[in-house]
């Protein structure tokens, strides 16, 4: 499975997550967001970029509770709460934002 943008192909798993993290780029993120019916704003990018940085540091996609706490620490309490994050990503911030960020499905996501 996968998709193609401007001649570049991206492989995805059966749930639509990118198989190869290194293939991710902004174009892929925009496509994945569209699939998730998420309209990307600056606030969305902020979370997506935060997730990529988190993955780069720790080699895992964080559980939603951990993501919320870490965002609060870095971007402030007005953003580090589930209300804010669910408004941006209604079907689950960890799951949707991770998918858009090109990360695997979060470990401990139950």
């Amino acid at each position: 499975m996968g998709f193609e943008i401007n001649g570049k192909t991206y492989e995805t798993d059966e749930e639509g997550y990118l198989v190869n993290l290194a293939e991710w780029d902004e174009e892929a993120a925009k496509y994945l967001a569209k699939e998730e019916k998420v309209e990307m704003t600056e606030s969305h990018w902020e979370v997506v970029n935060f997730l990529r940085e988190y993955y780069n540091d720790y080699q895992i996609a964080p559980a939603v509770r951990v993501l919320t706490k870490a965002i609060g620490k870095k971007l402030g309490p007005e953003k580090g709460n589930s209300k804010y994050l669910y408004e941006l990503f209604p079907y689950g911030p960890a799951k949707q934002a991770c998918k858009i960020a090109g990360l695997p499905k979060p470990t401990g996501c139950i």
């Binding site: 540091d57 720790y58 080699q59 895992i60 964080p62 559980a63 951990v66 706490k69 870490a70 401990g108």
Partner: peptide, 12 residues
């Protein structure tokens, strides 16, 4: 290399 993940445990 999963060793960086041990440093994420604090956040959990």
């Amino acid at each position: 290399n999963f060793s960086p993940t041990y440093r994420a445990l604090e956040g959990y």
